[in-house]
Amino acid sequence: MNTHQATFVRTSMIEGSAPPVAEGGIVHWLRENLFATPKDAVLTIVSLLALAWLVPPAIQWLFIDAAWTGGGRGVCATVAQGGSQPDGWSGACWAFVNAKLDQFAYGRYPLDERWRPTLVGILFVLFLIPMLIPKAPFKGINAILLFAVLPIISLILLPGGWFGLTYVETPLWGGLMVTLILSFVGIAVSLPLGILLALGRRSHMPVIKMLCTAFIELVRGIPLITVLFMASVMLPLFLPQGVTFDKFLRALIGVSFFASAYMAEVVRGGLQAIPKGQYEGADSLGLSFWQKMNLIVLPQALKLVIPGIVNTFIGLFKDTSLVSIIGMFDLLGIVRFNFTDANWASSVTPISGLIFAGFIFWLFCFGMSRYSGFMERVLDTAHKR
């Protein structure tokens, strides 16, 4: 008797099963990131307790009990202090920030002429955004507009005195406008100058190497406040009689040179990280020194040190507040200057203004940091398949 062995062939794939609860979802994330070990669990619980203790009072002070509108110190002072708030009240005085917002942005720039820095700011944003988008076309034209055309427009509009525009002296400039101008000029000058200084320090020509090394070590060895003080107070003493420079221009030069010294060391670290074979390969192709640097070495070196470059930019942006030592009022300086306004004198006005200034600085620095991370991911092609 013949027997036939029954067989079965599946005609469709088995549907994928969901991962076990312990290996996926929120439970898995909590176990891996917050409660992986007893030590992690203790730190997580302590951190949550600290947040539960600190965050609600902070929200209460910053938003719920805050004074948002008003026209004087009365809205930010208690009845016992001559204001309208009940005794024992404590909250942020955002009415002060709202009333002084124009000064925080423009300083003491004349009201009728503030359209000029506003126009420059709009052009800056319009020219900058395409430069920050990797796939945006016409990068060359955009770079010319941002780094060549915009400075010329700014030089005409901001100080004035050209084409019938009223002249506005730089001591009247202030606020966020000064912070952004100092930062942009410092960044635009320090990166190329820092690259040249880094190449000079690695040069085989003794004189070039000695001069670049001396400049870098001298500038890095003194604080920025000393550089600004020297540029503002000591520099005029060495100039011929009747020759002087605008104080704001001195600050721009001092900040740019100071940042370029630090930038040079960041770039030098990237140059030293490039394998020797890259240099030898470029030489074997018969490339000149500048061709080798522009086409082979620098693109790789700058990609490696993006975090260091952006860190220098962030430090430069925050260090602009030191220009107050030479009588210039950046964002922080103009905020502190307005504390002297008797119409807004209260116990919560200073801390409210400082929190606002700190938030603006954090916003710009956090933006630069996030963009740095984005560019690192875009340029990280070494291990992509």
Rank of each mutant, 00 (worst) to 15 (best):
N2L: 03
A6L: 11
A6P: 00
F8R: 09
S12H: 13
I14L: 11
P20F: 07
P20N: 13
G24N: 13
G25W: 05
V27P: 05
R31Q: 07
T37L: 10
K39T: 11
K39L: 13
T44A: 14
I45R: 11
S47A: 14
P57V: 03
Q60W: 05
Q60E: 14
I64M: 10
G70I: 01
G71M: 06
G71K: 02
A80V: 02
G83K: 15
G83H: 12
S84R: 06
Q85V: 01
P86C: 05
G91P: 05
D102Y: 10
R108L: 15
R114N: 09
P117V: 06
I122F: 08
F127P: 14
L132R: 12
P137C: 09
P137Q: 09
F138P: 00
F138Y: 04
K139Q: 11
G140L: 02
I141G: 07
L145H: 04
S154K: 07
G161W: 04
F163W: 08
G164L: 08
G164M: 05
T166Y: 07
W173V: 10
F184K: 11
A188I: 03
A198R: 06
R201T: 07
S203F: 14
A214G: 09
L218P: 00
V219K: 00
G221F: 07
V227C: 14
F229V: 15
M234R: 10
Q241W: 01
G242Q: 04
V243E: 02
K247S: 10
L249H: 11
V255Y: 00
Y262W: 08
V266P: 01
V267G: 10
R268E: 15
P275I: 10
G277L: 00
L287Y: 11
M293H: 13
I296A: 12
L298A: 08
L302I: 05
L302N: 08
K303F: 10
L304S: 11
I306M: 06
G308W: 06
N311W: 00
F313Y: 14
I314P: 07
I314W: 01
K318P: 04
D319L: 01
D319A: 09
T320Q: 04
S321W: 06
L322D: 10
D330K: 10
G333R: 00
R336Q: 04
A342F: 12
N343A: 15
N343E: 15
W362R: 04
L363R: 07
F364M: 14
G367D: 09
M368T: 12
S369E: 12
G373M: 04
V378A: 02
